[in-house]
Amino acid sequence: MNNILITGAASGIGAATARIFHKRGWKVGLLDVNEAALSQLAAELNGAWHQPLDVTDLEAVQDAVKLFAEAHDGQLRLLFNCAGILRFGYFAEIEPAAHAQLLQVNVQGVINMTHAAFTYLKQTSDAQVINMGSASGLYGVQHMATYSASKFAVRGLTEALNLEWERYGISVGDLMPPFVNTPMVTSQTFSPPVLKRLGVNLAAEDIAEACWQQAHQPRVHRPVSLQFKLLYWSGQISPVWLTRLVMRWLGRD
């Protein structure tokens, strides 16, 4: 049985991924804090399994994952940790509570979901975890400091679990796109220079397709878009000072 449980499923990348996997015959589970949008998407997908969820609520996470798995004979083929929040701006001008919330959703939420899913992943053939990484997890990005920190954490968790869970036959990888045209980006009130220089050249559907590719050809890291693939691979072979120089230029006011 091929099934996928998606956090942050009510809009943007999560919703696009749900539509693609549903259309291609997978059983889809939808989780999101936005109950109204979640119900609307579930109805669109012929009554797909769904439940409102705050990924920072550990007990609720454990209950949701258990319910989805039990509805599918205890199996969980793929967990897609897509839920996340973003805040552009100067680090010192963003209140500490906003920094904390971002880390809670983007890091602790991923940890909560992945930990809760382990029991069901390890008893499913070809099980996978796909985390929503970011180009900002390659090198820290100005005006996105805490978001970058969260994606560095996701990258580290991905790499570690990919090794640790190999013994169970569980693949863990992440998607690493640059800016994507989703409400998370378009709703921002501050526009950082790096956004203006790189542009927003990806749609949610592009990332959903990358998720589909990852589900069938797992990699530890999957850079998305030619633009970022070039940056990613050059970053693997270039000296740190050169990468820093490029990032300084991209973020320059």
Score class of each variant (00 low, 15 high):
G156Q: 05
S187I: 07
D126E: 12
L138F: 15
Q123I: 10
G140P: 13
V180L: 02
S148D: 06
E164M: 07
G137R: 00
A116N: 13
L121G: 10
I170M: 04
P177S: 08
G169M: 04
L161G: 07
M113C: 12
A117C: 13
I170G: 11
A149D: 04
N112A: 14
T158P: 14
M176C: 14
P178M: 09
L121A: 09
F179C: 12
R155P: 14
G173A: 03
V129E: 03
N162R: 06
V154G: 11
P178A: 12
V185E: 01
D126Y: 03
S125F: 09
A116M: 11
F152W: 03
I170N: 05
F179D: 10
V154A: 04
F179M: 10
Y120T: 15
I170Q: 01
S148C: 10
M113E: 05
E164R: 01
G156L: 05
R167S: 11
K151Q: 06
V172C: 03
M113W: 00
K151Y: 00
Q123M: 07
L138T: 15
A135I: 13
A117E: 05
M132V: 10
T186E: 05
P177W: 03
T146P: 13
G133V: 12
S125M: 11
Q128E: 06
L157S: 12
I170D: 02
F152I: 12
G140K: 02
V141S: 11
G137N: 08
V185F: 01
E159D: 11
N162I: 08
S134Y: 04
G173N: 02
G133L: 05
T119Y: 07
F179E: 06
A149V: 09
D126N: 12
A149W: 02
Q142N: 10
N162L: 00
V180P: 07
R155Y: 07
S136A: 15
N162A: 06
L161E: 00
V185G: 06
T182A: 00
Q142S: 14
D126F: 03
S148M: 05
P177M: 00
G169C: 09
L161C: 08
A153H: 06
A127C: 09
P177Q: 00
A153W: 00
L138P: 14
L157R: 06
S171N: 08
V172T: 08
K151I: 10
F118S: 11
G156C: 08
F179L: 12
N112Y: 06
A149F: 05
T146N: 05
L121T: 11
S148P: 14
T146Q: 01
S148E: 02
Q128F: 01
T124R: 10
L163D: 11
G140A: 09
E159Q: 13
R155L: 12
A116Y: 04
M184K: 08
A149N: 08
L175M: 07
V172N: 03
N131I: 09
V129H: 04
A149G: 12
A135Y: 09
T186C: 10
T119V: 15
K122R: 14
W165V: 09
G156D: 05
L138R: 15
G169I: 08
L161K: 03
I170E: 02
T146K: 02
M184G: 13
G133W: 00
I130M: 03
Y168T: 10
Y168Q: 08
E164H: 02
M132F: 00
N112F: 04
T146W: 04
Y139Q: 15
T182E: 01
M132W: 01
